[in-house]
Simulated scan of single mutants.
Amino acid sequence: MRPIGGRWNPRADFEQTVLDHDPSITPGQFMKAIAAGDHFFATSSSTPENDDYHRVMLRQLGVEPSSQLLADLRREVPPAVFLETYPDVEETLEELSRRGVRMAVVSDAWPNLPDLHAGLGIGRFFEAYAISAVLGCNKPDPRMYHHASAALGLTPAQCLFVDDDPELVAAAIRLGYAGRALCRDSAVSDVPSISSLTELLDFF
């Protein structure tokens, strides 16, 4: 899946939610706050708590992180408001499932990822999730990969790991998994790659 508008974090409604509480914030201030949030994310050993992440940006904005504002920033909205799947995703997952391929998700994400997938209509394809905010570590920590394969009852050698970050695919290969980097817009020479999810069908 991909974020509508191109930005994963913060969610696409972050600016408007904050402006509803303090309409004086400027676009330049938001840019600096989001950069501070990115730094906080990058230096965390695991996916941080949602509220902690928002507090970093709100402090940069000089906005009081009140309980009401934090609640508004994490309120549930339909996934289709800010997320969409790539055109090849659902039909490929459907066909893989039809062929008996068992699937799990390994993601640096918050605990609500299964709900987001369900809202997008793809949650039914996955038997297990290895989520950084739940496990307390990020990829390429081996625990992330091993949690997913163990949940499926498979050895690393029985699994194919797919990610859009070639370095994470290389880490999986070093752990004994087969791997493919999903590079929709560019070719990668360091690790085996595919340009479309549909190419996975050739392996099964």
Rank of each mutant, 00 (worst) to 15 (best):
G62E: 08
V101N: 08
E76N: 09
L70N: 10
Q68W: 08
D52V: 00
S44K: 10
P78L: 10
S107P: 03
P65H: 13
Q68I: 10
A80N: 09
S67Q: 15
P79M: 06
R74E: 14
M57D: 00
A80T: 12
V56Y: 01
L83Y: 14
A71M: 13
R102F: 03
R102S: 10
L58N: 08
D88S: 02
R102V: 05
M57Y: 01
E90C: 06
H54D: 03
T43I: 06
V89M: 06
L96E: 07
N50E: 15
P79A: 05
A42H: 08
A104R: 03
R98Q: 15
M103H: 04
L83I: 09
T85D: 06
D108K: 01
V106F: 04
M57I: 03
S44G: 14
S46E: 09
P87F: 08
L61C: 09
P65E: 12
S97K: 05
V63A: 11
V63G: 11
A42S: 09
S66E: 10
V106A: 09
G62D: 10
G37R: 01
E90S: 11
T47S: 09
D108G: 01
V63C: 14
T92N: 03
L73E: 07
V101S: 05
L96D: 07
L73Q: 05
L73P: 06
H39R: 14
A109R: 03
E94Q: 12
E94L: 07
V81M: 15
G100Q: 02
F82R: 15
P78Y: 05
D51V: 00
P65T: 06
A71F: 10
D51S: 02
G100E: 02
D88H: 00
L96W: 09
V101F: 10
A104F: 04
V101P: 07
F41P: 00
P65I: 05
